[in-house]
Design a binder for these strands. Structure first.
Lengths: 144, 144
DNA sequence: CTGGATTGCTATATTCAATAGCATAAAAGG
DNA sequence: CCTTTTATGCTATTGAATATAGCAATCCAG
């Protein structure tokens, strides 16, 4: 069968990402986390006191979608909110959240090692720089 | 702000892919196509007579999701079905479908050039091989 | 000919993400 | 000080991609 798509970087990017995300969902699911929750949790852990809006900007998530996400994690006592501003909260991980965030970080690192192991050695070092350039360049469209 | 995620290949892959897909959706939307429809159309064009199941296997899409997708495109007279087997159809693009597929291909190529232009020259040639390795290796989970 | 596999399909659920709109609060400018 | 603009968190809704379960018809192999 002819495959006119396999020489497209965009297509390979899409397939690679969806395969990775499926695997990630499985791994984080074992911790009781969604992929989006895992990244939020890790980012809060690294930046105690961060606001939801800052999280949104860092992760490229809409404010509207962040709200229920944080609400779920607060209900599970993974993160705590403390008023910092009349309208915004400072977020921090709880003890349980800290443990879970550490596990999530471990899982992420494991997956990353697995990913790099799959990539032929001569291409390995180029992958992260290339991908980083791709998404950082696109802040024009996702900007604001 | 600390960003514990930016050194993860998996995270960069996710962000790069979602930025690219957003751009792709915009480009294909201008042609009246969804991204999934565009790839299906291009694949049918390259393989006249292909069945839905074969398409599914090639693109990693579930049969259940392919059905309404093909139905939409048939309703728009972009693809035609001819019974080939008591249970399956051979798919082919119509004249209108051929034109649209050609446009979609052109758009994909344009996007791909844009993507590669963003990647620093020294990493450029490594991107497609690395990504291909990543998603082709994962056929264990998406297999069958 | 019978049982298993394949195909196309419906129905449904999940996840992520986008938009529109809103109330409150802060910041900026006169 | 007052008004306008911006920022924040939130609700509600929508769209798209994807996953599963199940079904009827058909094909195929023992």
């Amino acid at each position: 069968m002819k495959d006119p798509l396999s020489d497209l970087v965009g297509y390979a990017l899409r397939r690679a990402s969806s395969a990775m995300m499926e695997d990630m969902a499985k791994r984080m699911g074992a911790l009781g986390l969604r992929t989006s929750e895992a990244s939020v949790l890790m980012l809060i852990r690294a930046n105690p006191g961060i606001t939801q809006s800052d999280l949104c900007r860092a992760l490229g998530i809409q404010r509207a979608n962040m709200a229920p996400l944080i609400a779920r994690m607060e209900a599970r006592k993974l993160v705590a909110r403390s008023r910092s501003d009349g309208r915004s909260f400072g977020l921090a991980v709880t003890e349980a959240g800290e443990e879970l965030a550490a596990s999530a970080r471990r899982v992420s690192d494991e997956q990353d090692s697995g990913l790099l192991a799959i990539v032929p050695p001569e291409h390995r070092a180029h992958l992260l720089p290339a991908l980083s350039a791709l998404w950082r360049a696109d802040q024009s469209s996702s900007g604001q």
